[in-house]
Amino acid sequence: MSAITLNHVSKSWGAMRAVDDISLTADEGSLLVLLGPSGCGKSTTLRLIAGLEEADAGTITIGGVDVTRLSPAERKISMVFQSYALFPHLSVAENIIFGLRVRRVSRAERDARLRRVADIVGLAHLLDRKPSQLSGGQRQRVALGRAIIAEARVCLMDEPLSNLDAKLRHEMRTEIRALQQRLGMTMVYVTHDQTEAMTMADRVVLMRDGRIEQNGSPEELYNRPATAFTARFIGTPPMNLVRQGDHLIGIRPEHIRVVTGGDHAARVKAVEHLGADSIVLCDIDGQPISVRLDGFSKVQPGEDVRLAWEAGHEHRFDPATECRLETSAREGRLATSAG
């Protein structure tokens, strides 16, 4: 009983609508990622769920209970902050058991739970240290420990990995996901990093200007972006959007090939070698397009190449509304195969 539901929730700061009529559901035991560029309202949405901000309109329920007007403590949630929000004057152990002390949990139980949590997050040998004596990754673990010792069914995370280096971020990503599944928590995870969203989420909610742009599984967002915005946001590098006449066509870089006698003439602008593959940045009728090629590509900047892709890989968007055109994509495919 820990599903989270937002029903037509809004929050404004003066004239700015930070969260504009949002409805979503995080199923019990699932990990929902709120994804979007900075200022899109994802953090505000999380703070509304936590009760750190009060909603102007709409209702929020956790486990079927309406919590819209409840204080953060009454919502029985835990939260990890972007800054970790560790208490600098308290030791690691005291930071982790802070909430247990507040709730006057007995000493014996406190110690037992601290031992268990310290083992889970791998901090057993650092319990006497102060946060300032820890590395970034270790601080992150303390924040995690403090969140899971409460044994709350709901855990909220506000960009928890944004202060870590790339390698550690990769490790912690896997660890947080494993922990969430092992403890069966319902987790809402805010990030602007689409890699985190794609690798961790059961469901991704992509936000833009306080509204939900698309709500679906990572696979759906990748394979069937509902708008050009989603298409441009998801994928590294993201989907190419090319204007052809009055059509807006999207093609993933990995679906484009460099072939002699391809349909589209392009000029190579730059080549990025990533090792396993190379990203070739080209120019097609004055529009940029990136192509992912396997291995160490030998294409040179300034070279003229011809590109080709299968019509089945084309995504079509309405140039005015930027919404996905479902039927015309299929028609388009028929048209190309006929031509």
Binding site: L52, S71, P72, A73, I77, A85, F98, G99
Partner: peptide
């Protein structure tokens, strides 16, 4: 002082007085 600390304490259920005294 970072407002995050107050918020973290309030999520743990600490009263204002408790937060003042311990944080």
């Amino acid at each position: 002082l970072s407002p995050d600390l107050d918020e973290a304490a309030s999520i743990e259920g600490a009263s204002r007085w408790y937060t003042f005294r311990r944080i």
